[in-house]
Structures are given as structure tokens and as C-alpha cells.
Design a protein around this nucleic acid. Sequence first.
DNA 1: CACTGGATCTGTGTATCCACTTATCCAATC
DNA 2: GATTGGATAAGTGGATACACAGATCCAGTG
Lengths: 224, 224
Amino acid sequence: MPLSFATDPSAGSTAEQEAYRHLLQGVREGRYRAGDRLIPEDIATEIGMSRMPVREAFRRLAADGLVLIRPNRGCVVAGLTLDEISETFEMRSVLEGLAVRCALPQMTADSFDELERLLDRMERAGAASGGDWVLRHQEFHAAIYNLSRRPKLIRQINALHVVIEPYMRIWFDYVNKPLSARDEHQGLIDALRAGDVKAAEAVMQDHILGTAALLADYASPDRR
Amino acid sequence: MPLSFATDPSAGSTAEQEAYRHLLQGVREGRYRAGDRLIPEDIATEIGMSRMPVREAFRRLAADGLVLIRPNRGCVVAGLTLDEISETFEMRSVLEGLAVRCALPQMTADSFDELERLLDRMERAGAASGGDWVLRHQEFHAAIYNLSRRPKLIRQINALHVVIEPYMRIWFDYVNKPLSARDEHQGLIDALRAGDVKAAEAVMQDHILGTAALLADYASPDRR
DNA sequence: CACTGGATCTGTGTATCCACTTATCCAATC
DNA sequence: GATTGGATAAGTGGATACACAGATCCAGTG
């Protein structure tokens, strides 16, 4: 399975979809980097279409917060300041807390086994490339939220994941070992198994804010 | 001051901006109703431009969740199911709870006076037309969140307000008296004055979920 | 009555053109 | 030598015309 999407990829027709996918993947994987200028002409020829679908894709990406369109000055890949990164994690913490709260009542014994399985996969990916770990990590979280039966909530969470994904990759490549991946997430599974909704929500919030703190720690003294 | 925006209105150039504003206002005010088909040709001539900027505006609106674009079948105004409405209120409750938590430490005595003033305006608007009350109500909430210094959070909250605005208008026109507007919001101000961050967040969440319950009550037996 | 096969409409993509803004660079000037 | 100013290039934004494909509708057929 390839990358997932920030907004509904089926909203828009063939060529526009392809342009959107192409650009989205490019940004997520870090091939297009923050501040890079995106020239419709070039991208259109790159993927073999005219400029219009590309321009339309820009608008979707802008709404996702992935690029910035300034009148008469074209389209650049958006970057996040440190403040914006922590703001994003704050939003994640409350939204994903809500998602856990909604998902927990839907969980069965099978669900927990599935999560254990995904955690294993994530750990194995941790040994290899950073990008892969990030995807497995998203997959693990998504497996929980998908049970919440809250499509709009899930989509919003997804969009936030996408926005910070490039930074997660950079960070992961730097620390290059799967932090306390097992401990952190095993704790989460245990909290879910216990069935205490309030507690599970709190664990999820702490998990996310904890990650934010680690990432801020890494970025702050380094970039200054 | 006219209507505010879901996404950054400055992202896009003159004609596209105008198309976006026009469509956004139309949806918010209920001039375009859920299920209405939006024909680029018609709208383009309506506001005196070609179809291209209109099509681009569609993409932004689709990303905001206000319209639906189905491949080869054009653009229709999105409607919310009852489930989606309550899902939206759930998301509002946690996001606006977070916003209050961030805003409270920034508040001064002046802030509270300002809120009282806005509450008065809201109450006066309540006596008149429903649409005006909805705007004043948004204004009151926005006054709090704007202190949070969280631009992305504020934007997201705004987008959610816009999505449910048509339903708020319908509902308000039906009940036609400002519910417990003063009590509800006065309680909120008092909680803020007390300075207890946890409590203020809880009050905000209850306020929003309470509104959701009222709205669901109105919609559920009526539409069935 | 269900199904088939156009005819038509409309959404979508392409190609091209043009006006206007922004960016770049070089030379003249202080 | 730094700054200003203007010529020039590049790129955006919009309009228009056209080709094509998928949807929709309707009548004719079995």
C-alpha cells in the first residue's frame, strides 16, 4: 500500500488526481523541500499533462497547508516554524485523544492482536530506513482511529500527520533508532486493553505531546 | 466587517479570490443549498469571469469540505448527515477546548470587558434576524480563540464553524429566540474570570456539546 | 417492462494567446 | 563602492477555442 492522502483523492478527475498524488508524495517524501518553488509549467511536463490540472492540484494542496500560493508569485512548498510544529502536535493530541475515546468501545480481542502485529511490523521497520518507520507508525495509529467511525475526524488527523511527516523523517533519520517505540506503544495497547476510556485518551495525549517534546528538543538547540 | 473565511483568502489571485468569496458566502448564507449543483459556466458569467478561476475555487471549497467534486459529474454543495453534524461538534469541542486553554493565560481585565461587550451585541442581535446572531456568536467565540496565538488552530476552528453555519442558521430561525445565550456564555466568562484553565476548558466543551445536543434534538424527530 | 443503443450534454484536459506582475541584471549616478 | 533606475526576461493569471470521454436521457426494441 502506498501513501495515504490528506484530503479525499477521489475528489477531482484523473489528471488532477495524478498531479495531486505526485505533488503530495513529493512533499511527504521530502523530494520537494520547504521553500522550493513549484512551477506549473515544469511539473506539468514532468508528469505529462497541461498546466491546468497542476494549478488545480495546487489549490487543494494549499488548503491542506502543504504549499503556499501568493498572488502573482506562484507556489512554494510550505515550511513549519518550531511554533507551528508544536501547535500541530497540540492539535493532534486533542483530536487523536478524541479518536481513541471513540474507538475504544468498538474494540474487540481481535483488534488488540492486530495492534500487536502492527507494532511488530513497526519495530522491524525501525531497524531499516527511517521513512519506512514513519509510515508503519502512521499505520499503527490509523488502525486505532479507523475504529472510531468518524470519517471527518480521521481525515483531519491524517492531514496533520502529512504536514509533519517531512519533519518526522528528518528527525528519525537523525536519531536513527526507534526511540522508545515499543515501550511507548505497548503502554498504549495496555491502556486500551484495560478498557478505561479516560485513561486511554490521556495516554494517547501524553504519547503525542511526548513526541513533540522530543522533536522540539532535537530541533531547538540545533537550528539556533 | 463581512464574513470571515475558512482558508486563507489571500491564497490565490484576484479573480479566483472573488470566485471563492462569492461561493463561500453563497454557501454560508444558504443561498446555495446542500445538493445544489454548481455549474462553472453559470457562476462564471454570474460574476463576470471565465470558468477557469471558478474551477480553481471549487477545489479550495472541496478541501474545506463545503462542496463535493465527483469525477466527471461536477460540483455539488455538500450536505452533512446528522452523524456528520455531531462529529463536527465533537471536533469543535476538543479543538475549542484547547483554544480556551491556550487563550486564558493571555487574558487581561480588558479581555473580559471586551467579551461582555460582545455578549451584549450578541444578545441584541438575537432579537433580530437569525443570521446576524450566528455571526455575532462566532465573533464572541473568535474573540477568545484569537488570544491563543495559535493561527493554525484558529483557522481549523473557523473552518468547522463555516461548515455547520448553514445548519445553525436554519436551527436558529426555527427556535427563533436566543436560547439560553446569555446564561451559557455568561457562565463561560465567569469561568474564564476565575482563571482555572482546566475548568474553563471543561465549560467550553460542555457548552459546545450542549449546543450539539439541542441541535440534534431539533433535527432528529423532525426530519425522521 | 427491462434492456439496448444512440443523441446530447457537460465535465475535463489541451493548446494557444495575451496582459500584467515580479524578478533579474546591468549600467548610470551619487 | 553602494545605490538607484530602467530595460529585459520569466512566470503568473486569465480568456478562448477545441477535442474527447463519461454521464444522462430517451426512444425504440425485444
